[in-house]
Design a protein around this nucleic acid. Sequence first.
DNA 1: TCTGGGGTCCTGGTCCTG
DNA 2: TCTGCAGGACCAGGACCC
Length: 421
Amino acid sequence: MAPDRTILHVDMDAFYASAEILRRPELRGSPVVVGGAGRRGVVAAASYEARFYGVRSAMPSTQARRLCPNAVFLDGDHDYYRDLSTQIMDIMARFTPLIEPLSLDEAFLDVTSGRRLFGSGSAIAATLRQTIFDEVGLWCSAGVAATKFVAKLASERAKPSASRAGPVPGAGVFVVAPGRELEFLRPLPARALWGVGPATMTKLERLGITTVGDIADMPVERVVSVVGKASGQHLHNLANARDDRSVEPDQRAKSISQEQTFQFDLHDRGDLGRHLVRMSDSVAGRLRRAGLQARTISIKVRFGDFSTITRSLTPPSSTDSGMGISQVAHELLDKVDLGKGVRLLGVGASGLEEEQHEQLTLDDAMGDANTNDPSRSDWKLADEAVDEIRRKFGIDSIGPAVLAKPGERLAARDKNENPWG
DNA sequence: TCTGGGGTCCTGGTCCTG
DNA sequence: TCTGCAGGACCAGGACCC
């Protein structure tokens, strides 16, 4: 363990739900559930009033409605949450440049070098917490420890609890002093460890393991034999408070993907093909904005019975073009039997590398326009033109021709119903 | 009965190459 | 020429996270 580090884990309280209440104060005091407003869906966040009735994130929306029929169900507004998140991260940056965002609503901060200026870890956490509330209007909870893992668990200890009348304030800041990590960790349920989900927990229970202390006391070989080498060693280290991972700012994405669950299962290859084009176009746009190209293209298909497959292909050259991604995705989908109906379809790009300036082929130089080869420079020029138009007129101002119907705006293409059915 | 979306990491199998 | 082996790349799926 790195000595004398001070790491904060900062986690917004019921972020999406609190953000909605912030801009709609009339909802304050009501159970609010974000996500799951459609026919198929799960809860993204629930206010503490809703949590009192047992509503939890990732719960199917139908179940959430049964538990709390009076709740206000809202669609999420990702752009709004992203704006708030940017404000919050900007405030964090006043205390340290070493910030590792985990998602829109939580981050690790290494404040070791700021202690002289701002005070102890707990003082920094308290000031940060109050500043975020004063300037943004939302509360967060913070954990303070010498390692990321313990700081994360500590922030959970600082959280408010749920009541019918709303959140009952928690500590707000919870500190695990250096040297007291094992004392803090050992009584916790094994499920608290990062990397222990339902499947791993079932395996651990077969060994009689219920707490973090049980894992810590077990020979590492025994843990490895049950959950595999990498996971086993990782869990054993965490359980013994060994975690030397540093806070890593500027983490680059390793994959970019888009997927969509349809309101009703789709059976028609043509319909699915058009969704594939739309998603490929979107993924390609995100790649180009990030200045990246993908080596591997994959598709994900979830069938009506919820079974899921993935198929991937690594073509000879990397791509950032919607046309290129779409062609590979179609190739992969063509080999899939769609008899069971498709509930979800996704397109992903991985093996990301910095954008390369492609060399012109002989055909390019000869100006051959009778090919669909997406690596060609004319497709590249078309993509650049599309990006420019979208920058000026918005994301829905232009798109692949196959997605447009006569007289229909592209913006209307992605509603719940299938626009081609 | 119902199970989102966007990610990361790991494992095990297959295929190719030296 | 054939066989065995090791290592790497690729592929598919599982588990997990927020």
